[in-house]
Amino acid sequence: MIGIISLDLISEYSHEIVRGIAEAISDDERELLMHVSVDAIRERERIEFMARDLVDGLLLIAPMLEPETVELLQSLRIPVVVVDPRQLDVGLPRVTVDNYEGVRTATEHLIGLGHERIGFIRGEEDLESSEARFRGFADAMQLSGLAVDPESVATSGFSYTSGFKAATQVLERTNLTALLIGADLIAFGAMDAARAQGLSIPADISIVGFDDLPRAAQSYPPLTTVRQPLHDMGQAGARALLSLIEGQPLAVDRIRLSTTFVERASTAAPRADCP
């Protein structure tokens, strides 16, 4: 039995990772036991419960992993792999993606189209992935000789509602031609926030997300985004865990996958008459 613990198991983000896990173990005789942990305390309790001879190993999806929880995992001596950790130096085998390069490429795309006034909405600040994505944006702007206006930067929770609110604030206080956003869920809210202010996408403002959730290709207009290989992350995590369960050491304890820039219809060159 393999245990999976995640902050949620119903979002497109978690669903894609779990789908990859399930495919990776399809030829193995083990089953999956899944639990949701809504906070750090619940996460620690679920880990302790599942590790008591209930599962052969644990896969943790975007866990909080407070220091006490890491100490618990190390003391239990159960095989563990972390997929998309909030903090990178967790002292456990982990699967991550190149967040920095993904957003840097997306920013260069917007600059290449002719955009100079580009805003950024980042995810929750306690995630190292959010910081890496912002650095990718800021570095690309600096290397192109463009300034990052503090008024054009905001922080948002990973939800449509938070994205709508953050984008509304940024768009009300700036005159942007493009907006780069650290997660598709936030971008969906931002797209509606732009429309609520009478802006057309991409004629008046270009929008880029991050994740490439299944819904991104079906949004209106289809969302240009950075594909985070969620399915592959699940597969890589599951394969690493199976190796540990079978007593095989991992060649590396940090598996980092590449992102892919996906251009769709939510980006275009800024209008020639744009003020």
Rank of each mutant, 00 (worst) to 15 (best):
L213T: 00
L88E: 15
L76W: 05
D53M: 13
T259F: 04
I25R: 15
R104V: 05
G145P: 08
V82S: 04
D273S: 09
I17S: 12
G182W: 07
Q228R: 12
P275D: 13
P79V: 08
V252R: 15
S14E: 11
M50D: 11
M34S: 03
R264M: 03
A154M: 08
R215F: 07
A178D: 00
I61D: 06
I10A: 14
F158S: 04
I201G: 02
R30G: 00
D204R: 03
Q218S: 11
A272V: 11
L146R: 03
Y220L: 15
H109D: 04
A193S: 09
T161G: 12
D98T: 05
Q142W: 10
E29R: 15
F210A: 05
I205K: 03
F49P: 01
A24V: 00
G145N: 00
D84T: 13
S206P: 00
G163R: 03
D273C: 03
G157A: 12
L110I: 02
A272R: 14
V81F: 08
E172S: 13
S26L: 15
E246S: 12
A147K: 09
Q142Y: 10
V153T: 11
A268M: 05
R256Q: 13
A166D: 06
S243G: 13
A193D: 05
G234H: 01
S130W: 08
D212E: 07
